[in-house]
């Protein structure tokens, strides 16, 4: 594939063609990643018939060679999170800035990080090379104004932090958390793909059948505990930001940590963005901690105390931004 023919295209998915990881490319041109999630922007791009009928496909193994001729932005910062704790508010705010390109839970990044689950012969070194190449390919400048790249990973990618740090040594990152009771209420209200039993082998080393035998709230608590404990063990406390510190932590902590200088106009854009509901931008943002606390019953509080209180306390100990 002539790299020039891929100008304006980004990887939209990785699929396995008879055992070979293969990249599907989708043309975006100047369509920016401003939707709450990567998937939303791709869905908009797929409304163009070209992107349905004429998507180029290349082996994942060729991605690095293609990228060498069309380098993307280097990451300014990574956002990890415990799920349902304000990470979308953070990325939606930064996506308002024309100098920032935001990748929010991009499926092709997940596919690369989990490639070894599909084929155990895939080594860490291969995944590191593919992760660099994938982020580089996704981080192509499209408007010409972008100078910073922020990557928000899926919650479970915290379990792969060692590998991500090996791929991108020195890139600043933060870990967003929230009172575990409120997170558990959110997962009880609305199921997420992360909590599907088919993901149990990689999240908890459980079989899907074992996961399905557990009460749902307990399963949620144990998945979250695994992620929080991994982050706490990794020394994540220094980089933990609690939901209570949002939204001010966006301009007071995250922007400086990621090396993003904010003009007065940028600050206005950020303030306007945090006034909206991050996942449903046409609605106003409403702080809902009190409502979630009211909704939590004794069982949920017991699960939070049993599985999550200890790692949450370690993560939010002195040194973290807890608001």
């Amino acid at each position: 594939m002539n790299p020039e023919l891929l100008d304006g295209f980004v990887p939209m998915r990785v699929w396995w063609d008879a055992g070979t990881p293969t990249v599907d490319w989708c043309r975006l041109d100047d369509l920016r990643f401003t939707d709450p999630f990567f998937e939303g922007t791709i869905r908009r791009a797929l409304q163009h018939p070209f992107n349905l009928a004429f998507r180029p496909q290349t082996p994942l193994a060729e991605l690095a060679a293609l990228g060498a001729q069309r380098p993307g932005l280097a990451p300014s910062g990574f956002v990890f999170h415990l799920s349902r704790c304000g990470s979308t508010l953070v990325t939606q705010a930064f996506a308002e800035l024309p100098q920032v390109l935001v990748l929010s839970e991009a499926a092709p990044i997940d596919a690369v990080l989990r490639a070894h689950e599909r084929d155990p012969r895939i080594t860490d070194e291969q995944r590191i090379a593919w992760l660099r190449a994938m982020i580089d390919a996704l981080a192509q400048r499209r408007t010409g104004t972008e100078r910073h790249l922020i990557v928000k990973f899926d919650a479970w990618h915290a379990l792969q932090l060692d590998l991500i740090e090996r791929a991108f040594p020195g890139v600043p990152w933060v870990f967003l958390v929230r009172d575990p009771v409120e997170i558990l209420v959110s997962h009880r209200r609305a199921v997420s793909w992360m909590m599907a039993a088919l993901n149990a082998p990689s999240l908890l080393a459980f079989t899907p059948a074992e996961a399905m035998r557990l009460p749902r709230d307990e399963y949620h608590a144990r998945v979250l505990a695994r992620i929080a404990s991994a982050m706490a063990a990794h020394g994540g406390a220094e980089r933990t930001i609690d939901y209570r510190a949002l939204p001010a932590a966006i301009w007071e902590t995250l922007a400086p940590r990621f090396g993003i200088t904010l003009s007065a106009a940028d600050r206005e854009r950020l303030h306007a963005a945090v006034g909206r509901d991050a996942k449903q931008p046409t609605r106003a943002f409403v702080a809902d901690a009190a409502a979630k606390q009211d909704e939590a019953d004794a069982e949920l509080r017991e699960l939070a105390a049993r599985w999550l209180a200890e790692p949450y306390a370690r993560l939010t100990a002195a040194g973290s931004s807890t608001g």
Binding site: R13, V14, W15, D17, L52, A53, R55, A111
Partner: peptide, 18 residues
């Protein structure tokens, strides 16, 4: 043929393995 390619492209965007 083009319509079939459009339909196939939409379907393929939903799956991750052949």
């Amino acid at each position: 043929d083009v319509e079939a390619a459009l339909a196939q492209g939409l379907l393929a965007s939903l799956v991750t393995s052949s």
